[in-house]
Design a protein around this nucleic acid. Structure first.
Lengths: 362, 362
DNA sequence: TCGTAGTGGGAATGCGCTTTCCCAGACCAG
DNA sequence: CTGGTCTGGGAAAGCGCATTCCCACTACGA
């Protein structure tokens, strides 16, 4: 038994398919009450479910929102996804998920797939990369997005514009003040502390990571501190762990080496919480304690990680809200005047959140 | 400029749409090489992207897999989602996401929406509920799923069959041995420990929670221990925290009250990791230490939570694998003989993982 | 030489729905 | 009573593609 069609419903109700369509799926024209009831009843008794594909074909709009993330199991993306999902529900749309591991090439494929499905809009989360090895893929990704926009699609990208994208119609960027916030964090950390700073960053060219690093250095400079050394590693827990091991060795060497009064403690800034947790685990595995032997801060304020001990100092980012904003941005139809559109853009703000992991121990 | 169509490509290449279709999208008939090249080139120059909606309409199959979870930001579901996504990619399909908060009513809506989109299959994750208040919704959900299956859809549900679902064709259940594993956990915890046990469980009627509770009690019984008291609370961190506060008060009362030799320590079993973490946080907030003042174990072995201190004893569940299995189960076409189908079903196993949080302190 | 199978391409139909266009009847003012 | 405007319903034309026929042509054996 195949799913029943509008035509069948119409026949059962004794009306034309046109009328059935008008009553079952919103239309400007409202058929008479008695007829409407008949149709609705027929639909009910047949268990009619409109074929969204056909509807999409006919109306050329699918009710789909494409979401591109690196990894849906990463709590950072999961939080954003929750926001996207919530906003999608507001718009009575469904979200199509694509995970790419962050590779621009796969992102391009995902965009193409979304375009093929005629997704009404696309939300791209996840750090943009401008590494030279990604250059070609980025160009293609930009071209694909461009085409998608020209064909009427709306896209929102979290953080940074896709490298090389020409600011087409319908292209939104939800700016995240990574740099400013990292600077503020550095400022607060620098106050009343005299040890050196070390940054555990992602691979060079990852825009989010680079912004946070740059901002942190700027903040340090403003506080009259020397720039921090930068350790490059993978942008995930494993990377943080690895860097943490290096630092642990260094700290232990410093502690045993210097007979002088307690060498000023190292303050570690990992460019995201997950890396910070990895680094903490490494330090702990090496027998070091936080904040006694070193202090550490992250970025993002991942919800799942808030129960960690020592509580991680970090920068709170309204991840879910970001997802929501991005999604909403793609929803604004070209109805209003363009000027308005730019004004209304709500802006994302974060908040430096100092916790135990960077406290001075008595 | 609208997206270009197959017809346009065909015209540019100087062939019929039929031929263009045959070369661009796999067909049994392979047109001649020269023609194929011409078509491909035309498609390339036009930036042709096939309209998946139209394809779906014509072939009546969408290349979509629907995934239903309670909350995508919950690491449990995020992990499963990752597996589903991976399996979907194997099948060259995309995943459509729906979050329901666990309400059967919303799950029904999601199934209907997936059916409307003609999703090829649906994967339902998340604990089934058999609370009386959900009874009606469950019935409707079951009916909806039934209809979906009858219309050729395949569905896989993680853990338990939807209450009231008639085992239709194409309905798979990925069994998770919650009960057995909880029993094993209880057994291992009971060995060499004499304090009382307390279970922090979800609301009565949540099947997953109930299974784990039942299994744990059985395990306790096998070990010759009295059944544990059960605290019912919300199936999330907040619930765990709340229960933790209660227990903390109780522990403190017991400690101060009894002048006798150290009252045997309480061992807490929270039916999932997130709740366990919540409970731990509550205990800590009340000045109690784990495992010194009480021991605690969870269930799931959520990846993000593994760096927690004290490391949480738990039962490792291959969440990602579960998502993958569920998705693959829906992929098996009715090609093979049915007998085979049942044999091959790979089975999910977990592993009791004792860590610091349940160690006996010296 | 003719007949037949086989090959490769095109015309046409339909997937299920929306929407424009058309038409019959109702209703009102003149 | 007639001409006009609404109103509400139906017919039909797509939306973009897959696919079933059908046909022209070639190749081959008899």
């Amino acid at each position: 038994m195949a799913a029943s069609t509008l035509t069948e419903v119409a026949r059962l109700a004794g009306v034309s398919p046109a009328t059935a369509s008008r009553v079952l799926n919103g239309s400007a024209r409202k058929p008479g009450k008695d007829i409407a009831d008949r149709v609705r009843q027929a639909a009910e008794s047949l268990g009619y479910i409109p074929n969204a594909q056909a509807q999409g074909l006919a109306k050329s709009s699918s009710g789909l929102i494409g979401l591109i993330v690196h990894d849906i199991a990463d709590p950072y993306f999961a939080a954003i996804a929750r926001g996207v999902q919530a906003a999608a529900r507001e718009q009575r749309k469904m979200v199509l998920l694509a995970t790419t591991g962050g590779a621009p090439g796969e992102e391009r494929e995902a965009v193409a797939a979304f375009a093929a499905r005629r997704a009404d809009s696309i939300v791209i989360a996840g750090s943009r990369s401008c590494r030279t090895e990604d250059q070609d893929d980025n160009t293609e990704l930009a071209a694909e997005l461009d085409r998608y926009c020209r064909n009427g699609g709306r896209v929102a990208v979290v953080g940074h514009a896709v490298v090389g994208a020409t600011a087409a119609e319908g292209y939104h960027v939800v700016a995240v003040p990574n740099q400013e916030l990292a600077g503020a964090l550095a400022g607060e950390l620098a106050a009343g502390r005299d040890g050196d700073f070390v940054i555990i960053g992602g691979p060079e060219g990852l825009l989010t990571s680079d912004d946070r690093i740059r901002g942190f250095q700027e903040g340090l400079a403003r506080a009259g501190r020397a720039p921090a050394e930068i350790l490059r590693t993978a942008f995930n827990r494993a990377g943080g762990y690895e860097a943490g091991l290096q630092l642990a060795a260094r700290i232990k060497a410093g502690a045993s080496g210097g007979g002088e009064a307690a060498a000023p403690k190292l303050c570690i800034f990992a460019v995201n919480d997950v890396m910070a947790i990895g680094a903490s685990a490494a330090l702990r595995a090496e027998g070091l304690r936080i904040p006694r032997d070193a202090t550490i801060a992250g970025f993002d304020d991942i919800e799942t990680l808030r129960d960690f001990r020592p509580a991680l100092s970090t920068v709170r980012l309204p991840l879910e809200e970001i997802g929501r904003l991005a999604t909403r941005a793609t929803a604004r139809l070209s109805g209003g005047n363009d000027a308005d559109e730019d004004e209304e853009q709500p802006t994302v703000t974060g908040e430096v959140t100092l916790r135990r992991s960077t406290e001075a121990v008595a």
